[in-house]
């Protein structure tokens, strides 16, 4: 059955194959175009360098008018914790993600490549200029060393986790 969302996802896939952004790969499951696996490589020259992070993206028939549910698959984090990547990206113990463009700032202009690139770029730049969360911003500037140490732990875990 070819619905508008499925047709659109085929185009998302084609774009990702033909013109993959650096450090990103993704593909739908063989038998289910609504469910994707993706990998983001930790950007060079950041504490995330060398990490390989698996994600899953679950789409609905409302895509692209509604965002997919994106979560990290690799168990990257200590159980019972969440990780504040930056003031606008938070990852929970179960891998689910809190990111504005995947919630109330979603727009159909984002395709799969753009979603993954956004997440990747937030790893690059852990402190975007977001006055909304001054609290988180302050945490980074005060605990930079602690933050980097925790990121390195996550990166090492990403090599062994399946």
């Amino acid at each position: 059955m070819s619905t508008p969302s499925r047709k659109r996802l085929m185009r998302d896939f084609k774009r990702l194959q033909q013109d993959p952004p650096a450090g990103i790969s993704g593909a739908p499951h063989d038998n289910n175009i609504m469910l994707w696996n993706a990998v983001i490589f930790g950007p060079d020259d950041t504490p995330w360098d060398g990490g390989t992070f698996k994600l899953s993206l679950q789409f609905s028939e409302d895509y692209p008018n509604k965002p997919p549910t994106v979560r990290f698959v690799s168990r990257m984090f200590h159980p019972n914790s969440k990780f504040v990547v930056c003031s606008i990206l938070i990852v929970y113990a179960d891998g689910s993600i809190c990111l504005d463009i995947l919630q109330n700032q979603w727009s159909p202009i984002y395709d799969v490549a753009a979603i993954l690139t956004s997440i990747q770029s937030l790893l690059c730049d852990p402190n975007p200029n977001s006055p909304a969360n001054a609290e988180a911003a302050r945490m980074f500037s005060e605990n930079k060393r602690d933050y980097n140490r925790r990121v390195r732990d996550i990166v090492e875990q990403s090599w062994t986790a399946d």
């Binding site: 008018n65 509604k66 965002p67 549910t69 994106v70 979560r71 019972n80 914790s81 969440k82 990780f83 504040v84 938070i90 929970y92 113990a93 179960d94 689910s96 993600i97 809190c98 995947l102 919630q103 109330n104 979603w106 945490m139 605990n143 602690d146 925790r150």
Partner: peptide, 28 residues
């Protein structure tokens, strides 16, 4: 430093589900 030690509900499917235009209740 307790900040990231706070439990997020592992069953909380709504996090990240992101129905557009809705503000879900995020503990954080």
């Amino acid at each position: 430093e307790e900040e990231d030690a706070i439990d997020s509900n592992p069953n909380n499917n709504s996090v990240g589900a992101g129905a557009s235009g809705t503000h879900e209740v995020f503990p954080e």
